[in-house]
Amino acid sequence: MGTAGLGPLPCVPPPDQTARVPRAEILKCQNLRKTFGDLVAVDDVSFTIEAGETYGLLGPNGAGKTTTISMIAGILERDGGQVLISGRPHGTTSRWGKKQIGYVPQDLALYPDLSARENLRFFARLHGLGRAEARARIDEVLRMIGLTERAKDPVKEYSGGMKRRLNIGVGLLHRPPLLILDEPTAGVDPQSRNAILESVAALAGEGVAVLYTTHYMEEAERLCDRIGIIDLGRIRAEGTRRELVGLVGELDRISLTTGGAQAVPKELETLPEVRKAGSHEGRLEVMVEDARKSLPRVLAAATDAGVVVRAVEVHEPNLESVFLHLTGKALRD
């Protein structure tokens, strides 16, 4: 059970999970399998991502996230299964498929002795952009990642956050319909991390399908429309955050601080969405299925009953609980 004000990370509005309209399927993975000797790194992994959707692969280090996306990006040969990009088979030799993918590796994949512009130009040309098109697009991307002023400086002189932004910028150069981000915020300061998450959300808003791997639960919750929980090379569960949390069967808890002893008012207890309510040390504890939806009515009922509410806290079961429930271990183990 986690604690998080009125929302875990309020900078980006949570994805609207009630109004999902089917969109074009950009990525379809079927029964992906990869072994390294006796080690089965990825086993029977299947999922799809639609245009404008952000799909999170959430799992601890060594779970198989990077191996999975390496196969999807066409970097690593797979031992079994199939990858379809917009319905077309894709693999290590598929040039068309690779043009549809923007790949942002976990490690900084930049040439430190080259400037940002030189790095961007090299990868833009490598992805088939002509000189003029590359120049225009590089200017756009530099603006997007906020590095226009430092474009001519060698990358080795950049801060960690600037390098991370440039690392992502390279993946966006050729306007790919599918963006693969492998733990893009690893080792990044909170400010840069926030900027990266906002950028990813904005890209998804523009219709880019995003495959996002992370072992940070908060990022997956904040960013992803759907999440696949992966461990030991297998997807253990998949769905929206709400669906995954539903697997655990825990309820949300709304805690109203009243400042003194207060019995549970009848108006509150009889609300249809309230499963259970109690009073404890100057707080009213109200258990509901969906705190975000129920909060306005709970507050209204409390106020109508004459309760003076001094503070409100929402406690939601989080993905950490789900991961623990599914694998028997903590996400950061």
């Binding site: 390496s70 066409g74 290590t92 030799t93 040039r95 430190p112 990868f123 490598l126 088939g128």
Partner: peptide, 15 residues
């Protein structure tokens, strides 16, 4: 070692 090989391999270029 520097991580750029992954990006080269992901580019639409024959190995």
């Amino acid at each position: 070692r520097d991580g750029t090989l992954a990006r080269l391999l992901a580019a639409p270029v024959p190995r």
